[in-house]
Amino acid sequence: MARPTLEIRELRVGIDGREIVKGLDLTVRGGEVHAIMGPNGTGKSTLASALMGHPTYEVLGGTATLDGENLLEMGVDERARAGLFLAMQYPAEISGVSTANFLRTAVNARRGESDPMPVLKFHRQLKEKMERLSIDPAFAERYVNEGFSGGEKKRNEILQMSILQPRIAILDEIDSGLDIDAVKIVAQGVNDMLSEDFGVLIITHYQRILNYIRPTNVHVMMQGRIVRSGGPELAEQLEARGYEWLREELGIEEPLSQEA
């Protein structure tokens, strides 16, 4: 298969009738690591959720395609099976469903009924990936995310990504609430997958995680749009100087506290 391509054009997204993402353009290809940075409430997470098809968000205009297929016409599960993955900020807890059972169902949903993964092979793979991410193997039999700490949930998201092998992954604030060791483990999970067949979009407040996952492209999002794009040096600049200088340079007046 050709290199994956996520292509977003003039995308507008709203919630409760309020427009949050106001015409956004972005292309992420296999082998690329894009970071979207920006202050709180600028629509970064809204973008991620809308791409995955979160029921609360409404796409008001524009297009989003994965490998040329229209994502916006697909159901949430179809987007996932097409190769899109979203590591969520607040993944749900599923009582009574073990992590292993959940993941095996997800793997087989993608492979199709005629080609289920052999059980032993799946468990071997799961065990390897869990070790790699320093996740206690006992978690395989625990209910999905139930009683997990914030850090454990984030690592579990990365575990799901590495098992499901998506073509494009969006990591929505995967680093928030993690200590530095956990950030390194998460970064390693992402780096392990980097290839021409895999593209990543990292959404973050902080530059810290980008010390461990080297971005190819950095974008700054403000007021629902990408206002500046550059290379890794842009992230460093933001880390050193904050967002204020950019706001001034662009003539944007926006209180930091506005939530989306």
Partner: peptide, 8 residues
């Protein structure tokens, strides 16, 4: 939503 986002 969470489960469907994993392809189920």
């Amino acid at each position: 939503y969470f489960m469907m986002a994993r392809g189920i």
